Simulated scan of single mutants.
Amino acid sequence: MADFRAFEEIRVPVRGGELAVLRWPAADPGAPTAVLVHGITANALAWAAVAEAVDGRVNLLALDLRGRAHSRDLAAPFGIDVDVQDTLALLDHAGLERAVLAGHSLGAFVVCALAARHPDRVRSLLAVDGGVRLAPAPQTDPDEVLENTVGPAIRKLRMTFADGEAYLDFHREHPAFVGNWSAQLTAYLGRDTLRRPDGKVVSSCVAEAIRADGRQLIVDEFVRGAINTLNCPVALLYAERGILNQPQGLYDADTLTAAGLDRSRVTVTLIPDTNHYTIVGPGAGADRVAAELVEQTAREQHVGTA
């Protein structure tokens, strides 16, 4: 199996500066490429376990969204519309006229919005525990909804930690990570840490960027329903358990039906024994995501050469 550390970091020109992108090269230089978009407070190393499971069969490009990790210095404007433009810039930079796209959580909404607005740029799409509206747009403050939904991932943006180890300790207590700690998770969280001049550590995430993406995800009806408008092949993988490892996951048969998901157009697969985070973590989650990426890229490569 490939080592998740075997990546190179590249910089992609975008509005206001450069976007950080990790590239896990395929063993075969002619192998197809998939572009990966992470969740709301995550970064490109959220895909580390998936990259290992892909094992060099697909060329992977994973970006740090604007306002996160090594893309944190990119200035406003923020929001999902901007994330779409940044992802298009990556496609252009990589010479990808059309691409297989995958997104986890918020990233699934980003790639669905991209595919809806720019269908000519997308061959097929993989949504991982995201991309499907969860409930009617709320009448309350979107920031409050976001904090109540994502919980510790948002609270950490207001926190200061003594050092990097204290930052890891905060996450070791997260219900989704208890019993699921890994080297990949340590590296992913390390990419998120920012050391201040006084030696203290904070999250790299720019709060304004997180709020802008979160607000649009909660209130923008186009973004919330984009998956229902797509004509390209779409696969949805969803976790059995939720963000805090609770028994009720983000999705089940009832929520998918209520969201109007057309099961005749979207292939839907439950990944047992995973939660919202471990669905891209080592084990059953990353293995299934990797298998889907290999299948989609192989299918699209065959179509492209037929």
Rank of each mutant, 00 (worst) to 15 (best):
A2M: 04
A2H: 06
A2K: 08
D3V: 04
F4W: 15
A6P: 01
F7Q: 02
F7T: 05
E8A: 05
I10P: 00
R11Y: 12
V12C: 07
V14W: 00
V14M: 03
R15M: 01
G16T: 04
A20Q: 07
V21S: 09
R23G: 07
P25I: 06
D28N: 10
P32W: 09
V35T: 09
L36K: 11
G39V: 02
A46W: 06
W47Q: 06
V50W: 04
E52R: 01
R57L: 08
N59E: 15
L60W: 09
L61T: 10
L61K: 14
A62C: 09
D73G: 08
L74G: 00
L74T: 02
A75F: 00
P77V: 12
F78K: 01
G79E: 10
G79D: 12
V84D: 11
Q85S: 01
L91W: 05
H93S: 11
G95M: 14
R98V: 01
A99S: 11
V100L: 10
A102H: 10
A102E: 07
S105C: 12
S105E: 09
G107T: 09
A108F: 03
V110W: 15
D120Q: 02
D120E: 06
A127R: 00
G131T: 06
G131Q: 05
G131L: 07
V132H: 02
R133Y: 01
P138L: 08
E144K: 10
T149F: 12
L157T: 01
T160I: 04
A166E: 01
L168S: 02
L168C: 02
D169N: 10
F170C: 11
R172G: 04
H174D: 03
A176W: 13
F177Y: 08
V178C: 12
G179M: 00
W181E: 08
A187R: 05
A187K: 01
L194H: 13
L194V: 06
R195T: 15
R195A: 13
R196K: 14
P197Y: 02
D198I: 10
K200W: 01
K200A: 10
V202I: 15
S203G: 07
S203C: 08
A209P: 03
D213Q: 03
G214V: 11
Q216V: 08
R224W: 04
G225N: 15
A226C: 10
N228W: 03
T229N: 02
N231R: 14
A235W: 05
A235K: 15
L237P: 08
L237A: 12
R241G: 02
I243P: 08
I243A: 01
P247C: 06
P247N: 09
Q248M: 11
L250Y: 10
L250P: 00
A253C: 03
A253V: 04
D254W: 07
T255G: 12
T257W: 02
A259P: 05
G260K: 13
R265Y: 02
R265T: 06
L270N: 03
Y277L: 14
G281R: 00
G285K: 07
G285S: 08
A286I: 05
V289E: 01
A290C: 09
A291V: 03
A291R: 07
E292V: 07
L293A: 09
L293F: 06
V294G: 01
E295A: 15
E300D: 10
E300T: 02
E300R: 03
Q301S: 05
H302S: 08
A306E: 08
